[in-house]
């Protein structure tokens, strides 16, 4: 039973970690606390619905279309709403992301209607049986894809010039500008990556459940994940996401579904009180 809970929690937590990672990338790049991350994830589920069910694209093509659309969405959001507010205090930017999430939700409901849409992607749906433990192939695929994305992401930041410039910009905007870096382009890139990661998470959650704006609540589990892991920290976001997934499973399994929220948000409170920079954050930079 325990192993079962741990593995399921790990699989779901990987999806949360992916969405949280996208959140952390955007936060690191521009210090934008992006409350729209949850709804960006929902966009992923609906993009998958459009690409597979409405357009009838073969799955590999659909994946490319979904990722391209996600990148475009992130870039457009950054260009229209975040760039003009560059240099403004935190609060107006936060309000913008909240407004954005409400607008996107309404747009989705206008475009797709309020009825949840079932996804019909060719992701595997069977069961993998390992002794006593049963894992859904879909959850397992989600976890594996999440880890691959995280790996690609690390390689990108570690080994490519664009990744280096992104890290530099996150480190100091001004120094980046004075090194000739076009920070607007870099920030747009961060939004594209953050949106892509959210959208991939959304495709999986949409397939596990239904494409529905209610998924936003699950997407917003990325917030406790990043706060627990450390806002500034990339590994922190992933570990935070996995922790949230495992806590969720153990609390619902051993106590009650309601207990889940208590056990996710109590560590968040404790973290904010005793270690506001999070498990992996930087003490100087990482206060919430």
């Amino acid at each position: 039973m325990l192993v079962q809970f741990l593995l399921t929690g790990l699989a779901l937590g990987s999806i949360y970690g992916l969405v949280a990672l996208g959140f952390a990338v955007i936060y690191k790049a521009e210090r934008v606390f992006n409350f729209a991350q949850g709804i960006l994830m929902v966009c992923g589920a609906y993009l998958a619905y459009t690409a597979t069910t409405q357009l009838g694209l073969p799955f590999p093509v659909a994946v490319i279309v979904i990722i391209a659309a996600a990148a475009l969405l992130g870039i457009v959001i950054q260009f229209l709403f975040i760039r003009p507010l560059s240099g403004q205090p935190l609060l107006p930017v936060i309000m913008i992301t909240i407004a954005l999430s409400i607008i996107l939700k309404a747009l989705i409901e206008i475009l797709y209607g309020v009825q949840p849409k079932p996804l019909a992607t060719s992701l595997p749906t069977g069961v993998l049986i390992l002794g006593d433990v049963r894992l859904s192939q879909l959850n397992l695929t989600a976890a594996v894809v999440s880890w691959v994305c995280m790996g690609v992401f690390f390689a990108f930041f570690r080994f490519t010039k664009a990744g280096l410039l992104m890290r530099a910009t996150a480190d100091s905007h001004e120094a980046a500008i004075l090194s000739g870096v076009n920070v607007n382009r870099i920030n747009a890139g961060a939004w594209a990556i953050g949106t892509i990661l959210a959208v991939i998470g959304g495709v999986f959650l949409g397939q596990i459940q239904l494409a529905s704006t209610e998924l936003e609540h699950i997407g917003l589990l990325a917030l406790p994940a990043v706060v627990i892991g450390g806002l500034q920290s990339i590994p922190g976001a992933i570990v935070g996401g996995i922790l949230v997934g495992v806590i969720e499973q153990l609390a619902s399994g051993y106590i009650s579904p309601k207990a889940r929220d208590v056990f996710i948000y109590i560590p968040l409170l404790i973290m904010l009180l005793v270690r506001p920079w999070g498990l992996f954050g930087n003490r100087e930079l990482g206060r919430v």
Binding site: F5, T8, Q209, I218, E248, S252
Partner: peptide, 15 residues
């Protein structure tokens, strides 16, 4: 067997 409105999965319920 209770479950939450916005649950991400039903493993605990099915166990």
């Amino acid at each position: 067997i209770p479950i939450k409105v916005v649950a991400a999965d039903a493993t605990p319920q099915v166990l």
